[in-house]
Design a protein around this nucleic acid. Structure first.
Lengths: 180, 180
DNA sequence: GCGACTCTGTACCAATCAGTACACACAAAA
DNA sequence: TTTTGTGTGTACTGATTGGTACAGAGTCGC
């Protein structure tokens, strides 16, 4: 087992329990690794584990969502593709956003840069794509903010009501709002 | 100090730390009460405290938001009033939704009925108001769901970016979407 | 075979956890 | 003034917390 293999497992543990709720015993259970291995890979303990997970998630979104949104020549297609990627990433509403979970807790402050950067870059990348698709700058910024927050809210409500369809419907409405 | 006085303080502690993160010492610090008093008021411990807080919040929303939405003859005015109440309750984005925080954590399952009921009744009440305001049923349901999830997402994003204005803007856009 | 290095299990630590027990303060009622 | 009942502080419990120490296991190149 390598360090890189552990990070996704850690992600699921933090997703399920939050940062404070993710006890070392929950982490060992969720990863199948003992404390020895855990502290070998992450000498900084829980904090380093969480930082690694955040960086991993950020990297994925940067590659699969933010960069295409910024660089893809066909902006409209990039936006549609990003929505599809997001829907798949969050398992159609069955999975929760770790960064959002962290944002709501008091851990937010400890990972302020990571949390803020993630959402700020998402919003900025989407705004850039919308502008390239022809929207005026102010409207593009507003619409991008609305889209990001809709996705987050949809995840909250889907989990609250234990109904993934809430997320699916919200994404469908969002796409319609962005293009219809 | 009476039991009723403690509940709002408990609410703020749970808001700040989440359920798992709200240690007894955080609770005593936040409420100014010792364990003796705490367990005198809430023999069931943290679980009973959280249940009382959820019930308190639910009661406030039922009175100030859900019931007017269902019963007020002027549906449009009721919707506008509910938005204003929500904006004030969440301190224009500086406060977070406890029920949303619980929904994202693993505590959700322990308080499944309360969490589910809160959001389900919010959505239903708003849908009823929209229908009375003239929207067809399916559209009213969709729009209500969108509104509730927008509010939740706005709270997440506002806290993530440490920018309450995100919430204010989202509410303004939402009102425009509901009436414009 | 030999070290060298990466990985892992176990025993251990002080601190903190949620929760209990109980004596006592303080009030209103008698 | 005594009684009764509602609060409250403190000391304690066993369990669990995050973290450390360290002896080994496994696997390399040599």
């Amino acid at each position: 087992m390598e360090r890189a293999d552990v990070i996704p497992l850690l992600g699921e543990v933090f997703r399920a329990h939050g940062f404070e709720g993710a006890s070392l015993s929950a982490i060992t259970a969720g990863t199948g690794l003992g404390k020895g291995s855990l502290y070998h890979f992450f000498p900084g303990g829980k904090e380093e584990m969480a930082a690694a997970v955040l960086q991993d998630i950020d990297g994925w979104f940067e590659r699969a969502v933010f960069a295409p949104l910024r660089d893809e020549p066909d902006a409209a297609a990039a936006i549609r593709a990003s929505l599809a990627a997001v829907e798949q990433y969050f398992r159609s509403g069955r999975r929760v956003c770790l960064v959002g979970v962290f944002a709501l807790g008091e851990v937010r402050d400890r990972f302020a840069d990571e949390v803020e950067g993630y959402f700020a870059r998402w919003r900025a990348a989407l705004a850039a794509a919308l502008q390239r698709a022809g929207r005026p700058e102010a409207e593009a910024r507003d619409t991008a903010e609305d889209a990001v927050l809709t996705i987050q809210g949809a995840l909250v409500l889907a989990r609250a009501l234990d109904d993934p369809a809430v997320f699916t419907r919200a994404l469908a409405r969002l796409e319609h709002r962005l293009f219809g």
